[in-house]
Amino acid sequence: MLASDGTAYQEYVLTEMGRGLFPVIIALRQWGEDHLYQPDEQHSVLIDTQTGEPVTRLELRSKEN
C-alpha cells in the first residue's frame, strides 16, 4: 500500500491477543492516574471512537449469588 505522500507502509492489524491486552493497559493507565497525578493535574482522556464520549472507568466485579 502507499501512504498519501507516496511512501510504502504496512497497516498494523490488532490481533485477538492484542485486544485481550487492552483492559490490562487501561487498568495500568487508571492506576497511574490515581497515584501519579496531583488531584488538580490535567492528563489526557481516552475517548470512545464510536460514541465520542470518555471511556468509562474499568471496575472489577464479581458474580453475585
Rank of each mutant, 00 (worst) to 15 (best):
L46D: 06
S4R: 08
Q38P: 00
L58R: 13
A27N: 13
S62V: 13
R57W: 08
M1W: 08
L36T: 05
I47T: 02
D34M: 15
G20F: 13
V45E: 06
E16T: 08
L60V: 14
E41Y: 00
M1I: 09
A27Y: 13
V55N: 00
D48L: 02
Q38W: 10
Y12P: 01
S44M: 06
E53T: 09
L60H: 05
G32I: 10
L2Q: 14
T7P: 00
L28A: 11
D34Y: 06
L2H: 06
R29S: 05
K63R: 14
D48W: 03
L46F: 07
L58P: 08
A8P: 00
T15C: 10
V24W: 09
E41F: 01
W31R: 14
E33P: 00
Q42C: 09
E16W: 02
R61G: 02
D34P: 03
Y37C: 11
E59P: 01
L2E: 09
R61V: 08
G20A: 15
E64V: 13
A27S: 10
D5V: 01
T51E: 03
L36F: 13
Q50P: 00
L2C: 04
S4C: 12
M17S: 15
G18T: 05
L36P: 00
D34K: 09
P54I: 07
D34H: 10
G52R: 05
I47P: 00
G32C: 13
H43K: 12
E41T: 04
V13M: 03
T49E: 11
Q30P: 00
G18K: 03
R19M: 14
A3H: 09
D34A: 15
K63P: 00
V24S: 13
L21T: 08
L28K: 12
L2S: 08
E53F: 10
D5E: 09
A3I: 04
G18Y: 01
Q38K: 14
P23Q: 03
A3M: 11
E16G: 01
A3C: 12
E16N: 11
T56M: 14
F22A: 15
H35W: 14
W31C: 13
T7W: 05
G6V: 02
R19W: 14
H43A: 06
E59Q: 15
I47E: 01
E59G: 11
L46M: 06
Q42K: 12
L60D: 06
M17E: 15
N65H: 09
M1H: 11
F22R: 04
G18W: 01
T51K: 01
Y9S: 10
V13G: 04
E64Q: 15
T51M: 04
T56K: 15
V13W: 02
N65T: 12
R57Y: 07
T7I: 05
T7D: 10
K63W: 06
L28C: 13
D40V: 05
T51R: 02
Q10I: 06
Y9A: 10
G32W: 10
E16M: 07
D40I: 02
I47D: 00
E53N: 11
S44W: 05
G52A: 05
Y37A: 06
F22K: 04
